[in-house]
Design a protein around this nucleic acid. Sequence first.
DNA 1: TTGTATGCGTTATCAG
DNA 2: CTGATAACGCATACAA
Lengths: 361, 361
Amino acid sequence: MFNNRKRLLEMKFEAITIKDIAKALGLSTSTVSRALRDSHEISPETKRIVLEYAEKNNYKPNPIALSLKERRSRSIGVIVCEIANSYFSQVINGIESIAYDNGYNVIIAQSRESFEKEILNLQYPTSRSIDGLIISVSTESKDFNYLKELHQKKMPIVFVDRIVDEIETHKVIADNYTGAYNATLHLIECGYKRIAAITNPFTLSISRERLAGYKSALTDNGIEIDDELIKYCQHGGMVFSEVQTVVDELLANKNRPDAIFAAADKLTTNCLRIFKTKKMSVPDDIGIIGFSNIDLAELLNPPMSVIRQPAFEMGEVAMKLLLQVIESKRPVTDFETKILSTEMLIRGSTKKLFAKAKETV
Amino acid sequence: MFNNRKRLLEMKFEAITIKDIAKALGLSTSTVSRALRDSHEISPETKRIVLEYAEKNNYKPNPIALSLKERRSRSIGVIVCEIANSYFSQVINGIESIAYDNGYNVIIAQSRESFEKEILNLQYPTSRSIDGLIISVSTESKDFNYLKELHQKKMPIVFVDRIVDEIETHKVIADNYTGAYNATLHLIECGYKRIAAITNPFTLSISRERLAGYKSALTDNGIEIDDELIKYCQHGGMVFSEVQTVVDELLANKNRPDAIFAAADKLTTNCLRIFKTKKMSVPDDIGIIGFSNIDLAELLNPPMSVIRQPAFEMGEVAMKLLLQVIESKRPVTDFETKILSTEMLIRGSTKKLFAKAKETV
DNA sequence: TTGTATGCGTTATCAG
DNA sequence: CTGATAACGCATACAA
């Protein structure tokens, strides 16, 4: 490739700058700048001329130059494990909507449940091109030093869903404990006795919270907790075979579970996929309930009930909190944890079972 | 709020700059800059010192300053109507994956099917803070002058899915014609005679392509096209009531259709939702097939078949094309339109009908 | 091999 | 009311 740089410059559109306006109008750049910002110390006549010329030539301030000067980019970073996950895409939807209303850009990156990618994603934009960060940590992440450092350096951070307890900043989560408790309770009320749980690694806050709810529901109803019925998926269900393995283990159990509680979106989806390939009907062969935010779920009369998180709202709340910090309407020390309620959608065959169970009472 | 600006400066972390390193080491900024870039004209000793100091103090170049200097931001813009739509979230997934591999940031904005928002979203980042744009136009957009202007100004643009014919640039689409043709054919083969179509406005390329496929399949099989059976949703199904209205119109038809072809993700989903509220079972009362990329669809033994677009791949291809243009590995005049195949997933009751139809042949 | 000066586009400070 | 100058952080042409 020959003189690439020069060619680039030739080809690329050169937008009009303040300097161009100044030259064309025989003014100084500072006058033009002030006129454009409608400063009171500029004569109406000059203002008119400048504004007119700017309008006609479609002048737009260069956001990058502004960012350099103001040391703020008016953009925020969002890191989630996966965009094409209905829960996270709904969260992002909420974030974007508030960001848009406030003139902020949203830069998105996926960790794909990999700690390494999370760090890499953090590094570049983090250094100085984003004003704040909304993050849901990956299943793989155990070492949060990088985030801690960032936080100490005063980067505004808001955690959504998968939070880090040790870092004191704003957090937005669903009421995972209650959600899991009610889900497990529902299975119990349907008549199931041996209820297994498939969950993400214990390193994730959501796993701990949901597992606690699951356990409480069991003990509150006089069912003993069997650790053999609790299975962890290290990669959060990103690797299909992983879910397959734990399900196989469960089904091979001498004392096979009669129901499963899936503690995360991806796990729920993959569980269903497995039962499909095994040609097992759910919940005739096995009862199942899981966290899920997939849109179509409620439409297709699926064979299971789901716990749904207020994803869009969580995104909105997270972005609002982040804005408060960025625009320092709120000191960094005054942080809070917002807990939003989950919703349980009871339907399909579980519903019938549930009704039957109620009848016999 | 008192001296906000000053407070901001105090609070905000000031990252280390080249200037700081130079001062600390008693060197000039240019020497430091060159040492960091591993220039050959710097002595190994100096390099070592600089690199060591930079490492120790966790120096990171300021991306914004770099952008200003190099007149490129290493970030691209993506505009879709809705992120929380499984098709688009999968496209974005593909875009992000290629962008990440090449060190690009992805800035996302939603038009929410509104032309006004599309323009507004375009304006800010477009001016100079993105190096390229991937866009899927909104249902509302009829006037593409803004995009044309952008294109003339040499902003690299790639269209995905919903393209603009008049603008000569790279385009990535699914084979909508064939997808719609096969979908309609499938309904015909299932024994349906009066097949309605619910579609987005004709202004969208996908609507035109899909409707053409639908019509061809009908005429090829000796079925007359009935314009009363073709219904348009001006807001692309974003407004639920809109879909409800057209479905009601169809069902109120003296000569009621026995099947429906839904020509877009959102329309398919909302059709199902309507039949659910009407307590109509699909396809016992009415046959239905539609475009849909929802993940769970294949898992729940849904009552319908779907046409699926290769969303992730479309995103990947779009980003690769965009990179070629941005890094001028390819002249702007040499553009191409990539057409990727759709996939039809036949299942549920439609499958049984289909099998029965085949038997009787 | 290193340093000085300049510019990227903008705004703020100070001077006129 | 307006203009010259410096600065934001970095890279590079030119000097030494």
